[in-house]
Computed example of a mutant assay.
Amino acid sequence: MSRLNGRRAEATAHGEKVNVAILGAGSIANTMATTLVKMAADERYAGWIHPYAVAARDYGRAEDFRAKYGFDKAYGSYEELAEDPMVDLVYIATPHNFHAEQAILCLKAGRNVLVEKAFTANTAQARELLAVADETGLLATEAIWTRYQPSRRIINELIASGELGDVRAVRAELSYEPHGRDRITNPDLAGGALLDVGVYSLNFIDMAVGADHGRSVARFDTTMVPFDTGVDASNSTTLVYDDGLMAVATSSRAAASDRSGVICGTKGYAVVDNINNPLHVDVYGLDHEPVRRIDMPAQLTGYEYEVAAAANAILDGRGECPEMPRADTLRIMELMDEIRGRWGLVYPFER
């Protein structure tokens, strides 16, 4: 058991903070580091969140990262990080195919984990990881930041209010330009648009009209266009829910898009400016004239919500976050497995 798990009152009394470490030193790790530094300087979080350590496979790289952000510790191996008893929460910031192995390493060493999306490469890995979390009594939660952000509640409240009428169709689009990084196109790294950005399209739909509203997917159709390596460059999936609502999720790493989400009802529709980090929602009437704009609360980077949720779960001794329970992670992982199954896309390590 980690040193702070289930010890909120004692930790508060002694002024102890949740020490957060980052496993990996790539681009997304830098975003998380920026978040932690901002949280440590913000009165809402400074009393209980501490940027503590970073690990990379090369000590020099880890030390450069530590110095850049002012962390306490740098480690040249993931094993050393996992063995540090002062680490309370490890953010896993490596490619998808490594998530299960590295999270299990941390859990078995007594460290709670916040695992970057996609949680794992497939459902079997996710179940194995969560089984270890059960055995150790530690937190293992997925870092789908949109699940933790206030935008989720605000969008759900809009739909529940009836302002849009009966919602019958949704589309969610998230695509980015190709950036040449190997993790996007390499099947050995579980590459492809689906696990990289398509996971956000599916999660947006799940929150906006799916499981958050008691609906279940009844059937789906899907297609993709591959990179030369065989993983999906672009894809589209049409979901039909048990009450007939239709949703279309598209994603690509071959071209940029507007990243919008559109929720269509019998009285009007709403346009979410960016399903990957909503800043505002525009509501329109049946005449296509704007009715109002809903702005989202100001944020540090948007990652602070998942860190705070994970830290709260640790202090309360919970093995999951209510914002991202295991059932939600597994449901989306199973859907992505089924989608890849329709495509015939199997990663080399799955064979």
Score class of each variant (00 low, 15 high):
residue 124 A to P: 02
residue 218 A to F: 06
residue 339 I to A: 09
residue 201 S to D: 02
residue 300 L to F: 01
residue 283 V to R: 03
residue 115 V to I: 14
residue 3 R to I: 10
residue 148 Y to Q: 04
residue 332 I to Y: 00
residue 258 D to Q: 13
residue 45 Y to A: 07
residue 180 G to K: 11
residue 250 T to W: 04
residue 268 G to A: 15
residue 306 E to G: 15
residue 173 E to H: 07
residue 315 L to H: 11
residue 182 D to T: 14
residue 271 V to M: 15
residue 229 T to A: 10
residue 339 I to C: 09
residue 324 M to G: 03
residue 71 F to Q: 03
residue 268 G to Y: 13
residue 12 T to E: 14
residue 236 S to N: 08
residue 324 M to L: 07
residue 58 D to H: 14
residue 193 A to R: 01
residue 29 A to E: 08
residue 265 G to S: 14
residue 131 A to H: 09
residue 29 A to N: 11
residue 340 R to S: 12
residue 8 R to K: 15
residue 256 A to K: 10
residue 168 R to E: 08
residue 314 I to F: 15
residue 161 S to L: 05
residue 280 H to M: 10
residue 122 N to V: 00
residue 148 Y to W: 05
residue 229 T to P: 07
residue 83 E to K: 15
residue 49 I to D: 11
residue 109 A to V: 08
residue 132 V to H: 01
residue 149 Q to K: 09
residue 258 D to T: 15
residue 205 I to Q: 02
residue 52 Y to M: 00
residue 248 V to S: 07
residue 186 N to D: 12
residue 103 A to D: 08
residue 336 M to L: 03
residue 141 T to E: 06
residue 165 G to F: 06
residue 316 D to G: 11
residue 178 P to Y: 04
residue 285 G to W: 05
residue 86 M to V: 07
residue 35 T to A: 09
residue 192 G to H: 03
residue 340 R to L: 11
residue 294 I to K: 10
residue 22 I to K: 08
residue 145 W to A: 15
residue 322 P to F: 00
residue 307 V to I: 05
residue 88 D to K: 06
residue 84 D to R: 15
residue 90 V to S: 11
residue 29 A to L: 12
residue 335 L to Q: 04
residue 248 V to M: 04
residue 169 A to I: 05
residue 269 Y to Q: 13
residue 175 S to Q: 07
residue 196 D to T: 12
residue 105 L to I: 02
residue 247 A to W: 02
residue 269 Y to N: 12
residue 232 D to P: 11
residue 18 V to K: 01
residue 188 D to G: 05
residue 274 N to F: 13
residue 179 H to I: 11
residue 328 D to F: 02
residue 312 N to K: 12
residue 330 L to S: 00
residue 296 M to C: 12
residue 134 D to G: 09
residue 26 G to F: 12
residue 206 D to R: 08
residue 17 K to Y: 02
residue 12 T to R: 08
residue 121 A to N: 00
residue 173 E to M: 05
residue 173 E to R: 11
residue 28 I to V: 14
residue 268 G to E: 07
residue 271 V to H: 12
residue 157 E to K: 14
residue 92 I to G: 04
residue 335 L to E: 03
residue 138 L to W: 01
residue 78 Y to F: 15
residue 123 T to N: 01
residue 128 E to S: 02
residue 100 A to T: 07
residue 75 Y to A: 13
residue 323 E to T: 08
residue 168 R to D: 11
residue 99 H to W: 04
residue 201 S to W: 02
residue 275 I to S: 04
residue 21 A to D: 09
residue 129 L to Q: 02
residue 306 E to M: 14
residue 114 L to V: 10
residue 208 A to L: 06
residue 41 A to I: 11
residue 84 D to E: 13
residue 185 T to H: 10
residue 126 A to Q: 00
residue 288 H to R: 10
residue 328 D to H: 04
residue 114 L to Q: 09
residue 4 L to E: 07
residue 278 P to W: 07
residue 247 A to L: 02
residue 172 A to P: 02
residue 68 K to S: 12
residue 123 T to G: 00
residue 313 A to E: 12
residue 173 E to G: 02
residue 108 K to N: 12
residue 302 G to E: 02
residue 138 L to P: 05
residue 276 N to D: 11
residue 308 A to Q: 11
residue 325 P to Y: 00
residue 156 N to Q: 15
residue 85 P to V: 07
residue 40 A to F: 14
residue 125 Q to I: 02
residue 70 G to D: 09
residue 114 L to W: 08
residue 102 Q to I: 07
residue 58 D to K: 14
residue 125 Q to T: 03
residue 92 I to S: 05
residue 133 A to F: 04
residue 233 A to R: 08
